[in-house]
Amino acid sequence: MRRMMRRMKRSQRACAIGIALAAILGSIGSAPAEIYPSRPITMIVPYPAGGLFDALARILAEPMRAALAQTVVIENVGGAGGSIAVGRVARAAPDGYTVAIGSADQFVVNAAIYSLPYDVVNDFEPVALVMSGPLLIVSKTAVPAANLKELMAWLKANHAQVTQGHNGSGGHSTSVASNCNASSVQAGNSYPIAALLRRCRTWSAAASM
C-alpha cells in the first residue's frame, strides 16, 4: 500500500513535471509573434505635439497600421529632454506594444547631461533607423555675418546677447546653449560649438527651409 502510494506520488510528480514542461514549451512554441500584434501599439514621441518627431511619427503611423493590421496610437510625452518618455518605454513590458521614436537627443545626449534611471544602450532594442540628415547653420538675415567664420566671431563677441532657438524640448536646451556659448565659444574650440548645435535645433527646424 505504502509502495503503491509512493508510486502514485512519483507518477504524480512526473505528471506535474510533464505539465510544467508543456507549459514552458507551449510558451516558446506560441511565441507572441504568432499573434502579435493583437491589440493597438503605442508609439511614444518624446517631444510635444507639433515638432519634427511628432510629424515623423504621424506620417509613419498610418502605413504601419496598414502593414500590422493594428492601430498605432501616437502619444506625446514631453519634458526633461524626452527622458520621461524614454523612461516609460524602458519600463514597459517587452512585448512590442510600446515603441519609442527618438533621436540622439534621447538615446545619446540625455545620458551625458542627466542622471537617468535607465541605460540608453542596454535597456533598449533598436528596431529601425528611419531617417538621417545634416543640419543647416542659419541665422536671421539681420545678423552681420557673411559666412560661418564671421558668424562664429560675432557669436563669440556677442554671446551674452545671442538667443538661440531650439526644438521645444524644454528649458534645459536653452541653458545648455548658454553654457556652451560661455564656456566653449570663448575657448575657441569648434567642437563644443558642435555640441551646442546638437542641442539647439533652430538649425534643424531650418533644415526644412
Binding site: 519600463r91 519609442a100 521614436i101 533607423l129 531617417m131 538621417s132
Partner: peptide, 14 residues
C-alpha cells in the same frame, strides 16, 4: 552633425 531618427523597444522584446 547628423540628426537621425529611429524606433526602439524595451530590452527583451522577442
Amino acid at each position: 552633425i547628423s540628426v537621425w531618427g529611429g524606433l526602439f523597444v524595451p530590452k527583451g522584446t522577442p
